[in-house]
Structures are given as structure tokens and as C-alpha cells.
Design a protein around this nucleic acid. Structure first.
Length: 224
DNA sequence: GTGATGATCTTCT
DNA sequence: GAAGATCATCACG
């Protein structure tokens, strides 16, 4: 299958993550594998600010400075940061800002567009017979769900440059335009964390594949 | 449909 | 040794 759209350049990621996250909505996440091409439109993302930001973001992995795990975040923008969580899952981030400034964007949900069969197989979901309206949402509505669906692993994908033409993991744009997004507090941030209320989670209004059970209680804002 | 709980392991202190 | 940017499952209304 032909790879849709065109690559986003490095400069797209070279700015503050709270600007990159809403602008990533509507873009395509593409994974080319031996089994075929899988792609989805990004419908939900969260910004995590680097330790240099003012005020710093205590919820960010990079908050306490570089470690072996988060080293990718301190490198060049536009690189995948994949980490494992709760023993059994992975989350996918894209590094932002210039080298040394460790901001990033967590991809939280996709609307699946291509390779749905492979995604269902990767997620261990039954195919065909049990398929219904909620099928797409089951595939990729959640940060670890989308990693599982696309087959994104820390060992093979951490540190990949998503702006390179020869990278198996890419972010592309196909002309789809989003004018307004919903901004809410991030998910899973502890109450003892000073950043608990910061509106750094962004989602496409009304999209069925956005994660979470509750309605989005957030402000509708234009894409910056 | 909503809320609570357990599974499970990597990373850093 | 403790915590964690999660998910699936179960009980309840």
C-alpha cells in the first residue's frame, strides 16, 4: 500500500510541546512493518514540559534531568520516546524542542485508518464476526492500546526519528484540517502533583476514538 | 454506564 | 523498596 500524505519536518517539533500537541491532532501516525502498513489519525495527545520550562512540569519523565531511560527526550526533536509502564504496557511520545530541552508529546489515541486487520490481531481481538460500531475505538483509544495495535515496542522503536523517509515509524500530514480542539487536564496525574490541573491534554471534539469514559470537560479552543 | 480492583515489572531512590 | 503518563474485568445501579 502507498504511504499516505507527506512527512512533517523537524521544525514542526522544534517548539514548545503545548503548541506541538494540539497541532498534531489530525496528523497521521504511520507504521510500516513486514506484515504491512498500519496508519491512524491522531485524535488525542498530551504535552509534557521539560525541566527548563517555567514553571517546570513535575509530571514529566524528564523533570529530574536525564537518565538512561529518558535520554531520548534530551536529544533532537521529532524522535520517538517509548517507555514501558505497569509492567505490561508501552506508551509512545515524540520529543519536542531543540536538543537539551526535554519537552515531549504523549500520543493517547488514534482513529484507525489502515491495517485494521493487523491491529486487531496485535490486540488479540476477535475479527469479523464480533465487529461492530465500537470496533475502531477498541483498537487504538488509549496510549498503550495504540502501541499494542501498531506493534510499537521499546526495544525496537525507542529513539526512532519520525521525520525520516526511511523510518518505519513516521508522522505525516494529508491535508486534513482541524480548526478547534478540546483542552483538558491530563489523565493520570496525581493530586499531590502541582501540575494536576494544567490544561495540557488535547483532543478532537466529538471524535469517537478519544480515550476515557467521561465526557470531555474542557474548553474549546482554536488550534494555536 | 460508572467506579473499584488486580495484574505485573521497569526504573530510579 | 516504592511508585507509576494503564488496561481489562467485575460488581453495582
Amino acid at each position: 500500500m502507498k504511504v499516505p500524505g507527506k512527512l512533517l519536518p523537524h521544525s514542526f517539533y522544534e517548539i514548545r510541546p503545548e503548541l506541538v500537541a494540539p497541532r498534531l491532532l489530525g496528523k497521521l501516525l504511520v507504521h510500516r512493518t513486514r506484515e504491512g502498513l498500519m496508519a491512524g489519525r491522531i485524535v488525542e495527545a498530551e504535552a509534557y514540559l521539560g525541566p527548563h520550562s517555567e514553571p517546570p512540569d513535575p509530571a514529566a519523565h524528564s523533570h529530574r534531568g536525564p537518565t538512561p531511560r529518558n535520554l531520548v527526550l534530551f536529544g533532537l526533536p521529532g524522535h520517538a520516546y517509548v517507555y514501558s509502564i505497569y509492567g505490561k504496557y508501552f506508551c509512545l511520545n515524540i520529543s519536542c524542542e531543540k536538543e537539551g530541552h526535554a519537552g515531549c508529546v504523549l500520543l493517547r489515541a488514534l482513529e484507525p485508518l489502515a491495517g485494521l486487520e493487523q491491529m486487531a490481531a496485535n490486540r488479540g481481538l476477535a475479527d469479523g464476526a464480533t465487529r461492530n460500531n465500537g470496533f475502531a475505538k477498541q483498537l487504538t483509544s488509549g496510549p498503550s492500546r495504540l502501541c499494542q495495535a501498531l506493534g510499537v515496542l521499546r526495544t525496537s522503536h525507542n529513539g526512532l526519528d519520525v521525520t525520516r523517509a526511511n523510518s518505519p515509524l513516521q508522522v505525516r500530514e494529508d491535508g486534513f484540517v482541524i480548526e478547534e480542539v478540546i483542552a483538558t487536564a491530563r489523565i493520570g496525574i496525581n493530586e499531590t502533583n502541582a501540575a494536576v490541573d494544567w490544561p495540557l491534554r488535547f483532543a478532537v471534539p466529538g471524535n469517537a476514538c478519544v480515550s476515557g469514559r467521561k465526557n470531555l470537560k474542557g474548553r474549546r479552543v482554536p488550534v494555536p
